[in-house]
Design a protein around this nucleic acid. Structure first.
Lengths: 111, 111
DNA sequence: CATATATTTCGATACATGTCGAACTATCAA
DNA sequence: TTGATAGTTCGACATGTATCGAAATATATG
């Protein structure tokens, strides 16, 4: 049986809900593959390699207010971090969440 | 940037949607931790170690029709497999999907 | 200050979801 | 064949979600 407690289940369900919208999943992947601090040459706002809200909406065919809404959801679920830098708001993924999620699916196999 | 194509994104979004409901996630974890063929001593319907629809609904406080609905969603998303055995319908998790999902979150870190 | 850029908030709308209960189908066993 | 057990299907209802556009806020710059 699963070892997860009720709160953890609800937390992960919430995380998966945040990733259940294709546009939101695209944004998350964009950040996860470009903007994870610790990943080689990926997070460097000075060098322009991180992503701001506007970057994430580009190529996505949705208006800024919708992008903002989606980013709020990702942030609420604890999937991304944000910090204002001048006019822009930089977003990135904490690698810890990626490891947690990978382990979530690996654990049942490891038993 | 992400290497996933549109169809793959939609597929994963669909998988996460299936896992975004706490009750459904509980059912999936139940199966993933007890009923994965290949996992030591876990999948043996004869020995009564697999789970049928009724087993999955027990302890969950929802009526059978709702359980059935949730299982259909998990199946539709490709997360579980089902097979009738007499009156009962046995469910289990294909370990391949667990590996795919683990890799989905590991990949960005490995780069 | 006035204007431009970046983002958020709000209200509206159309659509999807979770749950229930009642009625139905499938299988087994007497 | 009758009844019991296991699941599914259907319709209803309340709630949640994705998206838009308009208006508001924050920051930088002339």
């Amino acid at each position: 049986m699963s070892n997860y407690q009720n709160d953890q289940i609800k937390h992960f369900a919430d995380v998966f809900k945040a990733l259940s919208n294709p546009n939101r999943l695209r944004m998350f992947l964009h950040l996860a593959t470009c903007c994870v601090p610790g990943t080689v040459g990926s997070f460097d706002a000075e060098a322009g390699v991180s992503a701001c809200v506007g970057d994430l909406g580009r190529d996505l065919q949705i208006v800024p207010s919708t992008v903002s809404h989606h980013i709020k959801e990702l942030h609420r679920a604890g999937l991304i971090r944000m910090e204002r830098r001048g006019q822009k708001i930089e977003c990135w993924v904490d690698p810890v969440i990626l490891r947690d999620l990978a382990r979530f699916f690996e654990e049942p196999l490891a038993k």
